[in-house]
Design a protein around this nucleic acid. Structure first.
Lengths: 158, 158
DNA sequence: CAGGATCCCGACAGATACTG
DNA sequence: CAGTATCTGTCGGGATCCTG
């Protein structure tokens, strides 16, 4: 059991690098699924689980999913809800989520154009977990804040 | 309700930049907690929730937490389990988790040195959610893979 | 309005060498 | 063994301009 870090992620969309087909044979990929022998993880860097985990556990994806909770939103609306995200990163993030089948993108042939985003059925299965993570953060932020202060106090300004 | 993206993260440990004290008054921070009015999020980029979420939703933290499940591991053992992580990133990740009170670091004054890492009580409360996320990935990897293929097929090699 | 295309800077992370 | 220090390349991501 090993947890391999996959680096050259093929997450590019904005930049025009080639998609870079998934490496490894199907047999290899199959072989590196997560497994609980008794209590073992097999998390190789080139395995599906790692690739998917790296995708959704990034700076924006979880937030986008959490916000699309139930609602259908337009591009601009999403951008305004997620303060601090640039148009580019919103585009990239949405493309990745769409690519993974978590978000559906609907273009209305109007002028001015209207594009709406909503969770797919698959995306909605992830919603519970996502919100659980956010909920955890809500509930424990005080404890974390306290831990940080203590740590800061114990380790004088490095 | 807005979701603000916090960028200059004060996550530095290896590099010797100043810690950069958390910005904003306590009142401001208090004001930007997550809230469900009816169904609204208030996720400003400078709020605690965002800061914490950015911390644990990075490339390595979730994996480290998942692996520390129950077990106590040494630095080298962790490094070997998480394939692809460098010593530097393992150090940085562990420091951040320690700083947030999720992981306890114990140094044994021996020679050669021995350092063990384990989840704190706080860290263990996050375990369920973390594993749920991993479990979701396990369960839905096939669907995601299929979605990717379809997307790739529909959007010829961009 | 919803993005695509470019330019570009700086943080992130790998490689290597050194230390208690 | 468990890191730290440094050096460096990469690329994430912001800013800006352009288009259908």
């Amino acid at each position: 059991m090993t947890i391999v870090g996959h680096d050259q992620d093929m997450t590019q969309v904005g930049t025009s690098t080639s998609p870079g087909s998934l490496e490894g044979t199907e047999a290899e990929l199959e072989a590196c699924r997560f497994e609980r022998d008794p209590f073992q993880w097999d998390v190789r860097e080139d395995c599906q689980v790692r690739q998917i985990l790296d995708r959704i556990a990034d700076k924006w994806s979880l937030l986008v999913i959490a916000i699309l909770d139930e609602k259908t939103l337009r591009f601009g609306e999403l951008g305004r809800e997620i303060d601090g995200i640039s148009k580019r990163m919103l585009t990239v993030t949405l493309r990745n989520l769409e690519r993974d089948g978590l978000v559906r993108r609907t273009v209305y042939p109007e002028v001015p154009p209207r594009v709406e985003y909503e969770l797919t059925a698959l995306g909605r299965t992830l919603l519970g977990t996502t919100q659980a993570l956010v909920a955890w953060t809500e509930e424990h932020q005080d404890q974390v804040a306290r831990a940080r202060q203590e740590f800061e106090a114990a380790n004088p300004a490095r």
